[in-house]
């Protein structure tokens, strides 16, 4: 069956992000002038407003900040998934991203859970970055 969930609509702001995801790479924008890392991938730095943006390979690691279990069919295509989880993940690099956890039973999802990215090719064109339980502890405390 054709994929019927919402898909990204890339623009020049975020096209590099989705192109990298298609190649199973998780990239984030960083400011060449001040070093700030941000998300969502605006063209300019949120700290110094520079447009000198570079992309770097992210750690693909983070921690669940909070989660919810969606119980109502708000979003087209997700009706058959109900109930499903949505998480807000704090990436090791600092930014927050929405995503879903895969392979974690609902009653084991909790804030503080260390997670790592997985790449799901949902269509020919698009890959979504989801997260699973991290296989080893977060690298945050390591040098």
């Amino acid at each position: 069956m054709a994929y019927d969930k919402p898909l990204p609509v890339p623009t020049r702001e975020d096209r590099p992000f989705w192109e990298a995801a298609r190649e199973h790479r998780f990239v984030l924008p960083r400011c060449r002038e001040c070093g700030h890392v941000w998300f969502p991938p605006y063209e300019s730095c949120q700290r110094c407003l520079s447009f000198e943006r570079e992309w770097f390979e992210a750690s693909e690691r983070g921690v669940v900040w909070g989660y919810t279990l969606m119980q109502q069919p708000y979003v087209p295509g997700y009706r058959d998934e109900l109930p499903y989880n949505v998480v807000l993940v704090e990436l090791e690099e600092g930014p927050m991203v929405y995503s879903n956890l895969v392979g974690v039973p609902d009653d084991e999802i909790r804030p503080g859970l260390a997670v790592e990215a997985v790449f799901e090719d949902v269509t020919e064109e698009f890959t979504l970055i989801r997260f699973r339980r991290a296989e080893e502890p977060s690298g945050r405390d390591r040098t």
């Binding site: 900040w65 708000y74 499903y84 949505v86 879903n100």
Partner: peptide, 19 residues
């Protein structure tokens, strides 16, 4: 902005729920 709907996220209520 954060591609929430591609992950099935919707509604301020869900955001308060998460918090």
């Amino acid at each position: 902005l954060m591609y929430e709907s591609v992950y099935g996220m919707a509604s301020p209520g869900a955001q308060y729920s998460m918090a």
